[in-house]
């Protein structure tokens, strides 16, 4: 709170004081009062007024400065009434009481919403586990009854499973709760699971799948990592380019600080102007328009999960040549991960 602004705000009162003092002086002069008496009265009145201004400014300053300062420090601004004391001036009291009511109703609303979101999340997770049962039965039935079986049905089942997983991880990525567990994970095992998931569709589309990750280990949640890699590989499969031998190559590199997992494909690539937006929610871009099944959620969720796990994810691409997605893991950086 600034004194100059406070004075400007109280301009009328100050003006009124000066005018009244002037009128009083004039009256006293016209009554032929002793000049020294007038001076004495003026000094007393002016000092009194200034003292009042200083007092009033200070009590307001004390309240508002703390108020603004606390507000600045607060992560959840609506909790401000928990931090400040009730002020000792009238408008301040009104403000304080009003804020208290507003915050209370806000907190109640927030609680209501977070409970309902938690309920919804719980239901979605439950539903996902339920829907996996018929999927599992169908996989078994197809396997056991070869006469019914058709690769196309298995592929469609896999699509359902992928979409269901996407919902599951969307729910996981959007919620503050930590339902992941970070431990040392072998890259080749995670990739092997992704490969197995996509085996049929890779073979069907004649896509060569090359993996050279050695025996590198990273600190991550293996299930989350599998989901992330599966999103990227699914994209590579979706966006293959005609006229070349299709290739997806997964490699790993490392330097003193990080391990890089690189997923390269020689697919249709991404238009330069679209690259910065591929991790945005529901962004589909030019490629998405070519392929009907794009929801624009896969890479967004992948990025959110990476953020939570403390990994970086970047993309590099040239249209009609290649796309390379890199996931960057911190090395033995327990502190960073634990955050």
């Amino acid at each position: 709170m600034k004194l100059s602004k406070y004075l400007r705000n109280n301009f009328l009162i100050i003006l009124l004081f000066i005018v009244i003092t002037a009128i009083t002086n004039l009256m006293l002069v016209s009554f032929k009062t002793d000049i020294q008496a007038i001076l004495g009265i003026d000094i007393t009145v002016i000092i009194g007024f200034i003292l009042y201004i200083i007092y009033d400014f200070n009590r307001r300053k004390k309240f508002y400065n703390k108020f603004l300062n606390d507000l600045d420090l607060l992560d959840k601004k609506y909790l401000i009434t928990e931090m400040i004391e009730k002020p000792n001036f009238y408008e301040g009291e009104i403000l304080y009481d009003a804020l208290y009511d507003i915050d209370k109703s806000m907190s109640e609303k927030i609680k209501e919403y977070s409970l309902s979101i938690a309920d919804f999340k719980e239901y979605i997770e439950l539903w996902i586990h339920e829907v996996k049962l018929p999927l599992a039965s169908m996989n078994l039935i197809i396997h056991n009854h070869k006469e019914l079986s058709d690769k196309k049905i298995i592929e469609q089942l896999k699509r359902i499973d992928d979409d269901v997983e996407q919902v599951l991880y969307y729910v996981r990525s959007e919620n503050a709760e930590k339902d992941y567990l970070i431990k040392e994970t072998e890259l080749d095992r995670a990739i092997s699971n992704v490969a197995m998931r996509n085996k049929d569709i890779l073979l069907e589309n004649n896509i060569d799948f090359e993996v050279e990750v050695g025996n590198k280990k990273v600190l991550t949640d293996s299930k989350w990592l599998e989901f992330i890699v599966n999103q990227i590989v699914s994209n590579s499969i979706k966006y293959i380019r005609d006229g070349v031998e299709h290739l997806i190559r997964i490699t790993a590199e490392e330097n003193s600080k990080s391990i890089f997992l690189k997923i390269y494909d020689n697919g249709i690539g991404i238009e330069k102007s679209d690259i910065p937006k591929v991790f945005d929610k529901t962004f589909t871009g030019n490629n998405g328009r070519k392929i009907e099944t794009s929801t624009g959620m896969g890479l967004y969720i992948a990025k959110q999960l990476c953020k939570k796990l403390g990994h970086k994810i970047t993309i590099d691409s040239k249209e009609n040549e290649y796309t390379e997605v890199s996931i960057i893991f911190n090395k033995n950086d327990f502190l960073n991960v634990a955050k």
Partner: peptide
Amino acid sequence: SKNSEADEV
């Protein structure tokens, strides 16, 4: 059907 690292561990 619980696909979670914590459950597995």
